[in-house]
Design a protein around this nucleic acid. Sequence first.
DNA 1: TTTATTTAATGAACATAGTTTAGTATATAG
DNA 2: CTATATACTAAACTATGTTCATTAAATAAA
Lengths: 205, 205
Amino acid sequence: MGIAERREAGKKRMQSLILGAAMKLFLEKGFDNVSIRRIAEKIEYSPATIYLYYKDKSDILFALQAMGFEKFYTEQQAILSEKDMWKRLRKHAKVYLSFALKNPEYYDLMFIMRGPVKKMKEKKEWEIGRRSYEFLKKNVKEYMDTGYLKKTNLDVAAFAFWSLTHGIASLVIRDRCIMFPDNHLNAIIEGSLDFVMESIAKKKQ
Amino acid sequence: MGIAERREAGKKRMQSLILGAAMKLFLEKGFDNVSIRRIAEKIEYSPATIYLYYKDKSDILFALQAMGFEKFYTEQQAILSEKDMWKRLRKHAKVYLSFALKNPEYYDLMFIMRGPVKKMKEKKEWEIGRRSYEFLKKNVKEYMDTGYLKKTNLDVAAFAFWSLTHGIASLVIRDRCIMFPDNHLNAIIEGSLDFVMESIAKKKQ
DNA sequence: TTTATTTAATGAACATAGTTTAGTATATAG
DNA sequence: CTATATACTAAACTATGTTCATTAAATAAA
């Protein structure tokens, strides 16, 4: 391996060292309690060093968001094994929500936090987000084509599906469900999904 | 007016001076660019003075959140003039969304930001939030009773309605709709609402 | 091998943040 | 006229993101 490549590899190594430490800290301490300085301390480098590998903090959040989208995209592939489109529609919602609630930090980065937005907009084409949306659309199209979803504009139906699942996820993650007793919340969430899905979907029989 | 009352009135006056300045700054500069120090500067007091009237920053956010809920609650009363429950259901969603998109800062404080949560949980009964939720439930019950909404558990149906509208609002407010061209977004939102509402609701005829 | 140059890393500093404390005027009470 | 309570603030403390001049280490040139 040539010297330029080694340098490049070293750079990548350092970047993922930083990302790993950052994410670990976020999971342990929560976003509000993680600073560049703490990340630096964790990896035993000076704070200034981090700026040699990431332009600013928002750049780190953006990179972590990308990791979240990667994980999200991978886990979502599980729905494809379900060939019954009605069941897949339900599974789709379940998988979405389950990702959100099991990985609230990633979900927050992906769909709620302001931090990564600047970088998202800088990109002319924000591929990783686009890919997730295209996956959603592709499946919604199939739900529609197989007659389980009322026909309408594809973006409209996809956005409706997304809004519902995101709404649930973000209300829970951002602590807006405190009026429901903890032991009821799960049933309410499941019930809401059922309620809408079974109404939205024109269940053939 | 007795002296104790005058003091009390002065305290209230000062509190609303602070709140007013804070909100004005939030609207002008955005949440990230408003500090206690800037609020103090705006009202021409020292930063320390603010702490005589609010325990901490989160306390100020909580107070502003309450103002938001007040405004929200008031504006929502408009739906009651609609006696046709099917139309009211649609209007309800419209009014909710319209509040969110016309007052994104208030909406953020009410349903997205972490800032006010600590105080929300401290209260044994968070009346102002509870009141809004009860209003939602009361109306959802009427939609159900008049046969425009499939019968199910009340909390479930209310949460479903809320999740959908909140999902739309929060995706827009937190800039997650950048894949839609600006001039399409509105139609997609409206379309999604129509799509779900007309599916969810068992439109009598 | 010695010297010059690029690269990696950092210490110290800057600006700003939330918050606390000790202290100073000012108004009220005795 | 003194004592006490009230309203306010300057200054400090801790912590943040970020920058810059400088040093140490690795590489290239001589």
